[in-house]
Design a binder for these strands. Structure first.
Lengths: 201, 201
DNA sequence: CGCTTTACATACATTCTTGAATGTATAAAA
DNA sequence: TTTTATACATTCAAGAATGTATGTAAAGCG
């Protein structure tokens, strides 16, 4: 066996994560063996065990990679002229990421449908910190909109934020699950536009 | 072994399904062995194999049981005075069922979080017939509301129905996942009320 | 230049699971 | 009353899958 440099080892590590994503998606996390991941990555199980303590750690490494784009790209712009526009664009951006970045989409598909939330994983089904953060930012954005008089009367920002949060959760799930011809999959932009329009003053 | 009568065999069958539900919930469907289900039900694996061809068939039998209460109890009453009231009550009823019927709630938890949608199961992640039926009834109900002038202007019934459908999907998921102190878990009624109120003329 | 650590591959022991085969006592049918 | 089908229990063979232990050759470092 030819010993690799640090850079080459890092590449191997990424290959293993990418292979894991493909195999998880096709077989589900539970039915995926490290042997199969290794084969898919063109290495042996020994290599996988070298880089990751076990399947769980590999799973979390994969998950981490997919969350980063959202932290970077989903932001609530403060548009004084139309505060709700910032909310709408943030929501749209979620689906742009899912559409454009296959690895992110596949990872979300795995998290949503190819994984059992039990034992070490059971905490993951609750709202994660990132999700609560998103809910908080949504609430702030609606508050700003209210201050600008952009909201229709009778709706508290916090309630609107909760409603939007649940809407987005449902949409992500159905978007991921749906076949291309289904509405949830084909027209998230329209659904988001309608959702936000309901809130306009 | 004492051979059982048909009635006793039916009871055994139900016991096995109930045991499977408990074990699925704790261990996840994939990591659950028929041996463990059998032990939980107080029978041997032979009995399980007698009643069900394999774990998949047992899973679907359990699932079937949990869907029935919704077909019975979630109905859209046609209230001419306040058509949106019928929609709101139908949504509320979903969570009454989940709150009151532990077996239904647990089964939904399994379907949502303790099961990998792969191979035979992969079709299940799409909208089932029951869900599409629900969406259809929602659309009809909103159409009736529009005809009665109960809807705020500018929103098409079909769009409202989609929005509500996604909201409910998100709410069910977060309600199931949440701990009792979380808002999604503690106050679905309020969230539903706000959601419907947004649509009022 | 020699030692140590790294980055894997290989081999092994152990532990589940599963499906099927077989046994068996009795309920139900004839 | 005899026969047959039922409703399980028990046993077995065989194949994964896992974690670990060990081998190894080269990279990295003083």
């Amino acid at each position: 066996m030819v010993r690799k440099t640090k850079e080459e080892a890092e590449i191997t590590r990424r290959h293993i994560i990418a292979a894991a994503r493909r195999v998880f998606l096709a077989w589900g996390v539970g039915r995926t063996t490290l042997e199969r991941i290794a084969a898919e990555a063109g290495v042996t199980r020994g290599a996988v065990y070298w880089h990751f303590r076990n399947k769980t750690e590999l799973f979390f490494a994969m998950r981490e990679q997919a969350i980063l784009p959202f932290l970077d790209r989903v932001v609530f712009k403060e548009d004084d002229a139309d505060p709700l526009q910032g909310i709408e664009m943030a929501l749209q951006e979620i689906f742009h990421i899912l559409r454009d970045q296959a690895e992110v989409r596949e990872t979300f598909e795995i998290i949503s449908f190819k994984c059992e939330y039990v034992n070490e994983f059971s905490g993951m089904m609750q709202c994660t910190g990132g999700q609560l953060d998103f809910l908080g930012k949504l609430t702030e954005a609606y508050r700003r909109a209210e201050a600008r008089g952009a909201l229709r009367a009778g709706s508290a920002p916090a309630d609107l934020a909760h409603d939007t949060f649940l809407f987005v959760g449902g949409l992500i799930k159905h978007w991921l699950a749906g076949r291309p011809d289904e509405r949830f999959r084909s027209d998230p932009a329209g659904l988001i536009r309608n959702h936000v329009a309901l809130r306009r003053a």
